[in-house]
């Protein structure tokens, strides 16, 4: 088990956004997190990634208690996240975006930065890796473009490429196909599946396009009004009457 949430609760001035959620994710799995708008999915991702602190409960990642840790410290442990809205650094190039999350860069220090010899070789190696990753998602020729000049789908792919460069053990994705054309949305999930297969990355994905999500996930957790309503395989969830009622409105 790589991620475990124990009775996690989050209150916002009287409003309980996440209510006593317990959840566990096995290493190498792709887990879907679904639910109607306002059910607490994005808040849960914020709690796991350190963007917000739980009011109660405990979050364990890869053997570490990350409940009160800052996002940068959580990332260093190998837990990365994507955002619902495009979150590239738009004025920076695709290459700079991709290189940014690489850990232990010698040139990321105000003293060593001016001594080029201390980081040039490492930077060159990182650039080669970054270009390889960009090539796999057909963005190799766009490396020098400003991120703002990419299409919506390319932005999502570039975000994933950036996450991979941080060498994460687990990725939290918040609607990775939002605003993306259907054919590209499917290909984004194919990339996710390839990353799991080739790099062993575990995924927890919030997604509304269930027809695509269900093709790729190992199991699904359904949230409703801040609580976990159901957990199971895509087939089980699709057949769950309670889920159908609150989520699909049947």
């Amino acid at each position: 088990m790589i991620l475990e949430l124990q009775h996690v609760t989050k209150d916002f001035e009287g409003l309980r956004a996440v209510d006593d959620v317990s959840l566990s994710v096995d290493e190498g799995a792709i887990i879907g997190l679904i639910g109607p708008n306002g059910s607490g999915k994005s808040t849960l991702l914020n709690l796991i990634s350190g963007m917000a602190s739980p009011s109660a409960g405990k979050i364990m990642f890869d053997g570490h208690d990350i409940t009160q840790k800052q996002p940068d410290a959580i990332f260093q442990l190998g837990l990365a996240r994507g955002f619902q809205d495009p979150s590239l650094f738009f004025q920076m190039t695709v290459l700079d975006n991709t290189l940014l999350p690489v850990k232990y860069q010698h040139g990321e220090h105000p003293v060593w930065a001016i001594l080029r010899g201390s980081w040039m070789r490492q930077e060159r190696a990182h650039s080669v890796s970054a270009l390889d990753v960009l090539k796999k998602i057909n963005l190799r020729e766009h490396f020098g473009k400003r991120a703002a000049d990419l299409s919506g789908g390319q932005m999502k792919l570039a975000e994933m490429a950036r996450s991979v460069m941080g060498n994460p053990k687990m990725l939290l994705l918040d609607e990775p196909t939002a605003g993306v054309a259907p054919n590209l949305a499917y290909s984004i999930f194919e990339q996710i599946d390839a990353m799991r297969r080739d790099l062993g990355i575990t995924f927890l994905i919030v997604e509304h396009r269930l027809e695509i999500l269900f093709d790729f996930v190992d199991s699904v957790t359904v949230m409703h009004m801040g609580r976990v309503l159901a957990q199971g395989s895509p087939t089980e969830i699709a057949a769950n009457d309670e889920v159908r009622e609150v989520y699909f409105g049947d």
Binding site: S49, M51, Q70, P71, D72, F75, Q76, A80, R81, F83, S87, F89, F90, Q91, M92, D96, L99, L100, P101, K103, Q105, H106, G107, E108, H109, P110, A113, I114, R116, W119, E123, R162, G166
Partner: peptide, 22 residues
């Protein structure tokens, strides 16, 4: 340098920079 890249990332989006370990 990579430090310059880091500074610009912090300038553009602090939240995302933090989520990327900075």
């Amino acid at each position: 340098s990579p430090y310059g890249r880091l500074l610009k990332a912090v300038r553009e989006n602090e939240r995302v920079a933090r989520s990327l370990g900075k």
